[in-house]
Every structure is written in C-alpha cells, then in structure tokens.
C-alpha cells in the first residue's frame, strides 16, 4: 500500500514538473506583455502597467490586423483544401484495389524523406513563372497535397469496416455518395485531428512564406515577428513582440482547446496497426 502511495506521489511530482516547464514560457509571456521593453530585458518578473502601451504600439507600429488576416486566409485555405485532397486520396488508396496504386502510394510515402531544400529553388521559379509571387496562392498551392495527411487518413481507414461500404454498394449507392455520407461522418475525429495538424502547420509556416511573400501587405504573422526581432543595430521593442507572439498563439490554442478530444481520438485511429 505505501509503495503504491509513494509511486502515486512521485507520479504527481513528475507530471507537475513537466507541466510547469511546459507552461512557464507562456506565463512569462503573459507577464512580460505588461512590461516595457527595458523592464523585459532587465528580467522583471512582475506584472507591470505597460500593457495598453504595448497593445497600442503593436497595432499602430505594425500591420498586425492585415497580417493576421493573411495568416488566417492562408491557414484556412490550406486546411480545407489539403483535407479534401488527402481524405479522397487516402480513401482511393485504401478501399480500391487496382494495378499501380500501391506503387503510387509508395512513391508518395517515400517523398516524405525529401528535404524541402531540394524543392525550394525549382518551386520558387515555378511559382514565380505562374505570376503567383506575393499572393496567398503561392503559399497555399504547394501545401495542398500533403503526403503526411494522405498517410494519416490512410492509417485511420485501415480499420474502417469494409462491410458497411459493401452493403451500401449492394443498395446501389454511388461511390462518391458512399464516401460523403457513410465514411466521412464516421471519421469525424480523424478529420478534426487532421484539421488541427494542417492548420497549425500552415499558420506557423515560416521559411516558404519568407521566400514568396515579398510585399508588406502580404506578410503573415511569423514573418512579422521574425522581421521585428532580427539582430539589427536598431532597438527591438520586446513589449510589442510579446503582444504579437500572444496574438499569433491564441487561434491555435483555441482550436486545440475545442478539438482536443477529437484530436487524441483521431491520432488513435491513425496509429493502429
């Protein structure tokens, strides 16, 4: 009995320490957004009275609203389109059998190992030739076919009861109809997990937007933040940076908070077998 109690206490201590480490930078961020840049640099660890000043500066000195909108536009576009493409593809790969399909799927999976730097320059040349530089499409289009998401849906379909599909076929349902009204509702948590994953990736994407979004009015939030904190000889307003980081984190936080249950469920499906 005592052994079990010690075990249980240790467990709580362990989880408490881990949780504290995880959360600490967030607490720090929330405290520092109320302090002036000088106080932040001096390591002040108490709530100050500069929040309104920082907040005001964040909106007046940067194109925060516009950049937020750009980020939202891109992330939503990528999420919706990539999920449609990936779920259809995974369904096609998993449910139907025909020559060559496994081969194509293997190529898809193998491509996950290709470093982005291999693609970067040719992609840039292509996007540029299409005249898409400085448009949201330059970021959205290359992200639509996400091999990882195809893999993800493929895994969760592995345990999907084929019988349901077949009995629907016998009832005369057409293939797309089966996908839409039978398969899709059952994969709700997989879709939620994929949506979080996809949105998060697009929202936080840095290197590619850095390359293709060249004008101020097209920037996304990560570009805004990294641009403001680059090591230049000009002073950096850390108060503003704190506000920007918080604002850029909130949407992902909310999405995760509300879809958390589905997220874990969806991941479960994805890793069976």
């Amino acid at each position: 009995m005592t052994n079990r109690k010690v075990n249980s206490v240790l467990k709580y201590i362990f989880i408490l320490i881990c949780a504290f480490i995880s959360v600490f930078p967030f607490i720090w961020m929330l405290i520092e957004c109320t302090n002036s840049s000088a106080d932040i640099l001096a390591g002040k660890m108490s709530i100050g009275n500069q929040f309104m000043v920082n907040w005001h500066n964040a909106f007046s000195q940067t194109n925060l609203i516009g950049d937020f909108w750009n980020s939202l536009k891109i992330a939503t576009g990528v999420t919706v389109l990539s999920i449609i493409v990936a779920s259809l593809a995974a369904y096609g790969f998993q449910i139907y059998r025909s020559r060559g399909k496994n081969w194509v799927y293997s190529i898809f999976i193998a491509s996950m190992m290709i470093p982005f730097s291999v693609l970067m320059i040719p992609l840039y040349r292509m996007v540029s030739k299409l005249g898409l530089i400085n448009t949201a499409w330059a970021v959205i289009l290359p992200s639509i076919t996400s091999v990882f998401l195809v893999f993800f849906f493929h895994q969760s379909l592995e345990t999907f009861p084929i019988d349901t599909i077949e009995s629907a076929r016998i009832d005369g349902a057409r293939e797309f109809r089966i996908f839409w009204s039978i398969v899709l509702p059952q994969l709700r948590s997989t879709f939620a997990a994929a949506a979080i994953y996809s949105f998060m990736g697009a929202w936080n994407n840095y290197m590619w937007p850095l390359i293709v979004l060249q004008s101020d009015d097209q920037k996304t939030l990560p570009l805004l933040i990294s641009g403001l904190s680059a090591n230049t000889n000009f002073s950096i307003d850390y108060g503003v940076i704190m506000i920007l980081i918080i604002i850029s984190t909130i949407p992902i936080f909310l999405i995760f908070l509300f879809l958390q249950k589905y997220f874990v469920q969806g991941m479960t499906g994805a890793n069976k077998g």
């Binding site: 790969f93 449910i95 059998r97 025909s98 290709i114 291999v118 320059i121 289009l141 996908f179």
Partner: peptide, 29 residues
C-alpha cells in the same frame, strides 16, 4: 474492376498536386 477504377478518381487530385509541386521540382533540381 470497374468499381476499382473509380479509385483513381479519388486519387486524381492528389496526383496532380504531387506531380506539380513535388515531381516537377525534383526533376528540375
């Protein structure tokens, strides 16, 4: 087999994207 061929329709979109934004850049590189 007929039903199975429909599978390609599901995969089609992703193949287009894959060809344009993965295969083509690799070949050029």
């Amino acid at each position: 087999e007929k039903t199975n061929r429909i599978g390609w329709w599901f995969i089609g979109l992703s193949i287009v994207g894959f060809a344009a934004f993965m295969i083509y850049p690799i070949v050029s590189s």
